[in-house]
Computed example of a mutant assay.
Amino acid sequence: MTIDPSIVSAFTPTGKLRASINLGNPILAQKDPETGEPFGVSIDLAHAFAKRLGVDLELVVFDTAGKSVEAVSEEHADFGFFAIDPLRGEKIEFTAPYVLIEGFYLVRDDAPINSNEEVDQPHNRVAVGKGSAYDLYLTRELKAAQIVRAPSSQAVVSTFLEQNLEVAAGVKQQLEADAQRTPGLRLLNERFMVIRQAMGTPKRRGKAAATALRKFVEEMKASGFVAQSLNKHGIAGASVAPAAEHD
């Protein structure tokens, strides 16, 4: 596939393609404990997109979704990997999702909460990762419960425990891993949201650039690239998003 030089220029104003990488979501990206290098499906997609454009790639790595979003919104990076959200969409043009991730609630074994409907009560405090997709979603959806923002998604359960909160909210896989390390915790038995993970680029880069990114994502899903990447990295709890209805 030949890429129009104007699209390449739109994505590389500094001469390199800068990918904003969020290490706060272990389904998408993690850091190798030995080398310190990031790896995961978002890194695989970033390299594939750079290859498609025929340019060098620079990974701009952050520890939270909020920082990663801000980097693209303020054009300190040329594209990134985010959950689709209306607030983020004010400055970022999203593709259709490439991966679907489930958001769940976690409580203590002896908590009186047994269903999602019981969470939104005035006496409940819900720990979330600041600026994460579920923070943005629950900020809109929860009317009575109080939201307590942990500094990152990885710190949600520790914040929940340290402050003796009633509920923790986050990506199912992250919560399950934390619950395995800490006895006496359980996940509620149904998701409260599906997190639609997409790629995105600043709206100021123009419609042609956004369209090229959307087509790239659809090709990566259809070719099996996304599924193969998830499998390669041993990722459970996420599924490849279906093809977009409109290109």
Rank of each mutant, 00 (worst) to 15 (best):
Gln30Lys: 10
Ser132Val: 01
Phe79Thr: 03
Met193Asp: 00
Pro5Gly: 12
Lys143Thr: 15
Asp109Asn: 14
Thr64Ser: 10
Arg125Met: 06
Gln30Asn: 05
Pro122Leu: 13
Arg204Phe: 05
Glu102Val: 09
Gly24Gln: 08
Ile21Asp: 04
Glu102Lys: 13
Tyr105His: 14
Arg214Val: 13
Val61Ala: 01
Val99Glu: 09
Val119Leu: 14
Gly131Phe: 09
Gly234Ala: 03
Leu87Thr: 12
Ile43Asn: 04
Ile113Lys: 01
Phe94Ala: 03
Phe192Asn: 13
Ala133Pro: 01
Asn124Leu: 05
Glu190Gln: 08
Leu23Arg: 03
Lys51Cys: 06
Leu23Asp: 06
Ser9Glu: 15
Gln174Ser: 11
Ala50Lys: 04
Pro183Met: 07
Gln180Asp: 15
Ser68Leu: 04
Gly131Trp: 05
Pro33Cys: 02
Ala145Gln: 07
Ser132Lys: 03
Gly170Pro: 11
Pro26Gln: 11
Arg108Cys: 13
Lys232Ile: 01
Ser6Leu: 14
Phe104Ile: 08
Ile43Thr: 14
Glu37Pro: 07
Phe81Ser: 11
Ala212Val: 11
Phe49Met: 11
Ser42Trp: 05
Lys91Met: 09
Gly129Lys: 02
His246Thr: 15
Val60Cys: 03
Val60Gly: 01
Ala77Arg: 01
Asn116Cys: 11
Ile43Gln: 08
Phe49Ala: 07
Asp135Pro: 07
Phe104Lys: 07
Pro122Glu: 13
His47Ser: 14
Gly103Gln: 04
Arg191Ser: 14
Val171His: 08
Val41Gly: 05
Thr35Tyr: 07
Thr64Ile: 06
Lys91Ser: 14
Pro122Tyr: 08
Asn114Glu: 15
Val167Ile: 13
Val99Pro: 04
His76Asp: 09
Ala133Trp: 13
Lys172Asp: 07
Ala111Met: 11
Leu188Ser: 03
His76Arg: 15
His233Glu: 10
Gln197Cys: 01
Ser9Cys: 02
Ala169Arg: 00
Ala144Arg: 13
Ile84Pro: 00
Phe160Cys: 04
Asn231Met: 15
Ser132Tyr: 02
Ala46His: 07
Ala144Phe: 11
Leu187Val: 07
Met1Ala: 12
Ala46Cys: 07
Ala145Val: 13
Ile43Pro: 02
Val156Trp: 08
Ser239Ile: 15
Phe225Leu: 11
Ala168Trp: 05
Val8Phe: 03
Leu175Met: 12
Ala169Thr: 14
Pro242Cys: 12
Gly129Asp: 06
Ala50Val: 09
Lys143Met: 12
Val72Trp: 08
Val157Cys: 11
Thr12Asn: 09
Phe81Gln: 05
Gly89Ala: 08
Glu176Lys: 00
Val55Ala: 11
Asp32Met: 04
Gly224Phe: 03
Pro97Thr: 11
Ala19Asn: 03
Ala179Cys: 02
Phe160Met: 09
Leu213Asp: 02
Arg181His: 08
Phe82Leu: 08
Leu213Phe: 06
Val171Met: 08
Leu185Ile: 09
Ala111Tyr: 09
Leu230Thr: 02
Gly54Gln: 06
Thr201Ala: 14
Gly80Asn: 08
Leu87Gly: 09
Leu161Asp: 03
Phe104Asp: 01
Val99Lys: 05
Ser9Leu: 15
Ala29Asn: 11
Thr12Leu: 08
